[in-house]
Simulated scan of single mutants.
Amino acid sequence: MAPSKTPQPPYSKDERVLCFHMEMLYEAKILDVQPTESGDGWSYKIHYKGWKSSWDDWVPQDRIRKLNDENKDLAQQLLAQYKQLQSGKAAKQPKKGGRPGGSDLSSARGSEERTAAGTTTQNNRNPRRARDFDLETLS
Rank of each mutant, 00 (worst) to 15 (best):
M1Q: 09
P3C: 04
T6H: 08
P7V: 13
P10E: 02
P10W: 14
K13W: 05
E15Q: 13
C19T: 07
F20C: 00
H21A: 04
M22G: 04
M22H: 11
E23Q: 15
A28D: 01
K29P: 02
I30E: 04
D32C: 05
T36R: 07
S38D: 13
G41H: 12
W42G: 01
Y44E: 03
Y44N: 08
K45M: 05
Y48L: 03
G50H: 12
W51S: 10
D56A: 01
D57H: 14
P60G: 11
Q61R: 04
Q61W: 01
D62A: 00
R63K: 15
I64L: 06
R65P: 03
R65I: 04
L67K: 04
D69N: 11
N71F: 02
L74F: 10
Q76N: 06
L78F: 07
L79M: 05
L79R: 15
A80R: 13
Q81F: 01
K83M: 05
K83T: 10
Q84W: 15
S87T: 15
S87A: 13
K89H: 10
A90V: 14
A91I: 09
A91T: 10
A91G: 01
K92W: 05
P94I: 03
K95M: 07
G97H: 06
G98E: 14
R99G: 11
R99T: 08
S103Y: 04
L105S: 01
L105P: 08
S106Q: 07
S107L: 04
S107A: 04
A108P: 01
R109Q: 13
G110E: 07
G110I: 08
S111V: 14
E112W: 09
E112G: 12
A116M: 06
A117F: 03
A117M: 00
G118N: 13
G118C: 08
T120A: 05
T121C: 14
N123T: 12
N123I: 09
R125G: 02
R129M: 03
R129V: 09
A130S: 03
R131H: 12
D132W: 06
L135G: 09
E136W: 10
T137N: 03
T137A: 07
S139I: 09
